[in-house]
Amino acid sequence: MSGKVFGVALGPGDPELITVKALNCLKKSEKIYYPATQSSKGNQDSFSLVILKQLGVEENKFVPITVPMSKDRSAAEKAYADLFLKVQKDVGEGKQVVVVSEGDISFFSTFSYLLEDFRKNSVDFEMIPGVPAFILGGSAGKLALATQNDKLLIAPDIEDEEELKSLLEQNQTVVLMKLSMVRDWIKVFIQNSDLKFFYGEYLGTQKQFTCTDMESLKDRKIPYFAILIFYGNK
């Protein structure tokens, strides 16, 4: 059997939301690389590993891809370069290997950083899609994210309130991801705007919390794994 690498999406957190194809691929693979973050104190954390451990896959296949938590992207770029070399070696040896990401494999995914090197070096790969967090957010909030000619925008990083106001004027639905980056001002913005919103954190996990009112949100510390959906802006 010739070697191949699969980018496999794990979904947003609920192990039942992984696709049948993705789960079958994990079970058939010989090695599974998963992203993990490392704090300045050396502590390692991985949302992907939490999902993997609930899927009944052999844990001796798991290999962490450790990326230090830092705004300096050089450490992350080195980690991705090292991962590519490991995967290239595995594929050259005829192995079927997987690189996983939570959510969807083409949406803010570790795998996306490997695509150019795979193509340049003729590494055979396949991408298996999954459910991103904002899609689960729509279901958890019992929302229609878009109908007919509605415009839906996904924004991972907003500079300030003025930028957000502009985006809301141009789109019926705006999804904010990586919400912890705007936690300093977003609650005041919501309170002053009187817009309909859905807030969700750790969606699909036992730590899931959701709300649609400011009273429930005002005293919460917004984590990295949180989204905010503004909807009905017509």
Rank of each mutant, 00 (worst) to 15 (best):
F209W: 07
V99G: 01
E161W: 06
S122D: 15
P156Y: 08
L167Q: 13
A144V: 14
S122I: 12
D14F: 10
F197Q: 08
F108C: 07
D219G: 01
R119D: 06
S70A: 07
Q44A: 00
K178E: 12
S74H: 08
D150F: 00
S29E: 01
P15Q: 11
F197I: 06
E102H: 02
A79H: 11
P15T: 13
S106L: 04
V99C: 05
W185N: 09
G137Y: 04
G130K: 05
K178P: 13
L145S: 08
N43R: 11
L49N: 12
S112R: 05
G42R: 03
F134Q: 05
P132E: 00
S101Y: 00
V57S: 02
K207C: 06
Q96I: 13
G92E: 11
I32E: 02
D72N: 15
I32H: 04
S166F: 10
L143N: 09
K61D: 04
V100F: 00
T19W: 08
L167I: 12
C25M: 12
E159D: 13
L26W: 04
P68A: 02
E126T: 14
T110R: 00
K218N: 09
N43V: 12
D160V: 13
K165V: 12
K41Q: 07
K120N: 15
Q96Y: 05
A79R: 05
Q96H: 12
I51P: 02
I229Y: 04
A36Y: 03
T147A: 00
E169I: 14
S216F: 01
I32W: 01
L143V: 09
I190M: 06
N60T: 14
E201A: 08
N233V: 14
